[in-house]
Design a protein around this nucleic acid. Sequence first.
DNA 1: ACTTATATCTTGTAATTACAAGTTATATTA
DNA 2: TAATATAACTTGTAATTACAAGATATAAGT
Lengths: 236, 236
Amino acid sequence: MRTNIPRHKKLYDILRKHITEGIYKEGDLLPSENELCQIYGMTRPTVRQSLSTLANDGYIRKHQGKGSIVHRLPRDIGILSVSGTTSAVGDRNLKTRMIVKPVLVPWDDDFMFVLSDMEKESGCIYMERLRLLDEVPIFYDISYIANINLPRITSRQFENKSLFHILRTHYHIEVTGGEQRIKAIPALGKTGRYLRLEEGEPVLHLERKLETNNPVLFLYSSIYCNTKKYSIFGRF
Amino acid sequence: MRTNIPRHKKLYDILRKHITEGIYKEGDLLPSENELCQIYGMTRPTVRQSLSTLANDGYIRKHQGKGSIVHRLPRDIGILSVSGTTSAVGDRNLKTRMIVKPVLVPWDDDFMFVLSDMEKESGCIYMERLRLLDEVPIFYDISYIANINLPRITSRQFENKSLFHILRTHYHIEVTGGEQRIKAIPALGKTGRYLRLEEGEPVLHLERKLETNNPVLFLYSSIYCNTKKYSIFGRF
DNA sequence: ACTTATATCTTGTAATTACAAGTTATATTA
DNA sequence: TAATATAACTTGTAATTACAAGATATAAGT
């Protein structure tokens, strides 16, 4: 049981929170590395590791001789990032509504990604959810997970909780990467109804395969996005 | 004039070259950090910085207690990656047709990204291109570049050549990263005509801002994609 | 033969020191 | 006053040391 969160990770969390909560605003200069050392009682390599991660995640820009400048609030929906949908828009305004509770079903014969034999044998945990941002449905999300070493997952409460959060806290599963295909398709049938779009209106469709720290466990999802108001944002 | 390339950057370049050239193949274990220290005569923090960058770029995965494993060759870099559209599908089958040759125009007042004062003053090199895959139009690409230190660019031949290729070979400009917004929109007017889509059919729209090794030079583009047949692929 | 413990590998975390290089404000000089 | 030089910041690079923690192969025990 590890409860020790590394110090650089703690500082990263603090600074990120300060940025997302507006204590540091876009364009603001963060305290210098040496100041952060004094404030949080750590040394420069540790502070630099935190800032490096923040810069990697796009929260700040570092300028030699100048300092670290807050770059942007991720107000665009950053579904392209690794951390999953929730962390991108902030947990506050995003509500999750379960449409089909997690059930164990066999895999489709023509599943969108290639499955390993182990995945095929173990069956598929299937669920459908709707994510609402400010009461407006934005994502219609169909998730598929291989039924590998995830006890009692079908009976868990998913309401207003991120799937990633549950996997992390209860099963120690972290997403490490993945791949996706993106298309623009017309909203048809229930997709349009869920997302409150007219028949044939454009919808963004993502097919994602996420890799985890468990090398045999992948998370698959088919996500339909209403991009009328919001864009999908990504850095690279 | 700086010619001193940092040691961690040198090692990064070497290892990346070895990976892309197949000396280290996918799944291979890289030499351990201590071995790399000995081989290249540097210390572990320096080696770790190189490996950290490689991991960030997706070339390797690090596993505590195990080592660094080559993750992938970026063979199907999607349009979401840094290298631009061309490398995504391979230069072979992709043809570029110029619709509006590069011209110097003032920037739009409500440009899709925030511009620096220098960019605003210098004006905008504007061009429109159509990219065809197997004779089918896939990308309708509108590019914007600040007119900073790019002599004679409006008179260059762009036919069937990548913009990135020209910038690299003639101006030593490399794309180092960027951000983008993605939407699904209806095909309207000339967008639909260029991409041979019916009025109102879904189109993928990307707004990209690419950063370069020249810190004041950014490449902007607005890309409309016909995703009826092909998907946009991305890894992260 | 199989299980278990140990040793030894790996990467992760973190403090310390030193200097280089870019930026900016201040002080100096013409 | 205005241009220039300097000082005082900032982040970047890099070597050194120490221990923690995860993974794995080897040896010992049953």
